[in-house]
Design a protein around this nucleic acid. Structure first.
Length: 453
RNA sequence: GGCGCUGUCGUCUAGAGGCCUAGGACAGGUCCCUUUCAAGGACCAUACACGGGUUCGAAUCCCGUCAGCGCUACCA
């Protein structure tokens, strides 16, 4: 059997669609599974949308997901592979040759300035690896325009020519192309070529149940990079849409996914995109990352989204990251949790004002806490910090230390949720904790921590 | 409208005639833990679209109905 050659052929629209990313992934998995070749071809024939930025989005998305390609543009102006060019915009002479070939074979005719291909009226049979054998009645099938009045060749034609020229053995693409495939096969046959194998994979639907469109939240792969998702998690999740690695298994290392991936095991029914599950899965990957990977990831993410974080005391930053890590699932959440520590002028959330600072005893308790921590001298650890809270709760005759603890959290962070409190206090250090207590007390007494709308 | 694909818990899926009183995961609920939110542990609830066949036996095969989606461009 000849070596497998598959391709991903996106068009530069300005974003890499999540469905496209999944198509790329399936092609990549199949290439890696079979030891074949993965080709990237850019279908940049729509000049109005085609910009360098839009093309870069594709490269960036592919790299981010870890989908390396063996042939195609290298993203730096060069390319690899000997079946190029890999931009359709540079292949006009090839299309012209094939157009001529078809014309000289007498399979075309001109109509209204366009060139049309005479569709055979015999039944069109598509043997699909996923959908099985699908037959189309073509007795009423109109002839296919293959070259427009302006001289440019149309998608169906160039797509076939490119796959043919590039020696593609398996066309793995979205199911929205299934009903067009018999036209492509007719073209292959008219060109005297053998057809590749086809595998039409189910579509990814939005929450509403229709094909994911650019307008849907999270439809662009870049969304997940920006939100601080881990590429391995997104890749793993995407695998599960339309394919399953086996009973009761979902989270698997990429090597294992490659090993198990089979085109014939792909589902036939469309799948809805479930952001909640991706979020959960990201959390699984997040927690199992090595310390080194975590450090590298957070450093890069914070550099991009919270450049101020680099000004922070290194020890405190490391300490915060460590205690936050176990409670958040994405980079964006982490960055958000970092905000109260980027400045001493931190904000107080509406929730904290309502739940904690509206308590008439709050100022008094904050004063007691400040004094309590001051009495610790220099050394604070989780145990004696907890002891201070318990002691003050008793002195104030509160039923539970939790009352004090929640107020304390709100005072030092301005939030009602956050990392494990005593660990947080230790990371902040006794001086900063005292200063924050004082600041909060002052604002409270000045009437500036009232409930906001 | 025509054609095509699909139809298992709310969602993603396991299931290729008996192993299914249908399994797992996310989401949801209850409880435990507990310092909030998480995380973790225990448990609960929820599905074979419907109707006919075939068969000793059907979620699995066939037909019909219904539903969803897609295609039907001188877009890609």
């Amino acid at each position: 059997m000849s070596k497998v050659r598959v391709r991903f052929a996106p068009s530069p629209t300005g974003l890499l669609h999540i469905g496209g990313a999944r198509t790329a992934l399936f092609n990549w998995l199949y290439a890696r599974h079979t030891g074949g070749t993965f080709v990237l071809r850019v279908e940049d024939t729509d000049q109005s949308r085609n910009t360098q930025e839009a093309v870069d989005v594709i490269f960036r998305g592919m790299r981010w997901l870890g989908l390396d390609w063996d042939e195609g543009p290298d993203g730096k102006g060069g390319f690899s592979g000997d079946r190029g060019p890999y931009f359709q915009s540079q292949r006009s002479s090839i299309y012209a040759q094939y157009l001529e070939k078809l014309q000289s074979g007498g399979r075309t005719y001109e109509d209204g300035g366009a060139l049309k291909f005479r569709m055979p009226k015999t039944p069109g049979v598509v043997k699909d690896l996923v959908c099985g054998e699908v037959t189309f009645d073509r007795t009423m099938e109109p002839d296919l325009v293959i070259r427009r009045k302006d001289g440019s060749p149309v998608f169906h034609f160039v797509n076939v020519v490119d796959d043919l020229e590039m020696g593609i053995t398996h066309v793995i693409r979205g199911e929205d192309h299934l009903t067009n495939t018999h036209k492509h096969i007719a073209l292959y046959e008219a060109l005297g070529a053998t057809t590749p194998q086809f595998a039409h994979i189910p579509l990814i639907l939005n929450q509403g149940g229709s094909k994911m469109s650019k307008r849907d939240e999270g439809a662009a792969l870049g969304f997940y990079e920006e939100a601080g998702y881990l590429p391995a998690a997104v890749r793993n999740y995407l695998c599960l849409l339309g394919w399953s690695p086996g009973a009761n298994e979902e989270i698997l290392p990429v090597e294992e996914l490659i090993k198990r991936f089979e085109l014939t095991k792909i589902n036939r029914s469309n799948a809805r995109f479930d952001g909640d599950k991706l979020f959960w899965m990201n959390g699984e990957y997040w927690r199992s990352m090595s310390d080194g990977d975590f450090r590298k990831f957070t450093q890069e993410f914070l550099q991009r989204t919270r450049p101020e974080a680099s000004q922070m005391d290194a020890k405190m930053r490391e300490g915060l990251l460590k205690i936050m890590r176990e409670k958040v699932r994405t980079g964006r959440e982490l960055a958000d949790w970092m905000d109260p520590y980027l400045t001493e002028e931190y904000e107080y959330s509406a929730e904290s004002r309502k739940k904690q600072f509206s308590n008439p005893d709050a100022a008094k308790l904050l004063g007691m806490l400040e004094a309590g921590f001051a009495s610790l001298g220099g050394g604070m650890d989780e145990a004696n910090a907890e002891a201070v809270c318990k002691r003050i709760a008793e002195e104030a005759a509160l039923p539970k230390p939790a009352k004090v603890i929640h107020l304390l959290r709100a005072a030092v962070s301005g939030r009602t949720v956050g990392p494990s409190l005593f660990a947080l206090l230790v990371v902040l250090g006794i001086d900063r904790v005292k200063a924050r207590l004082l600041r909060t007390k002052k604002l409270l007494e000045a009437g500036q921590l009232g409930v906001t709308a």
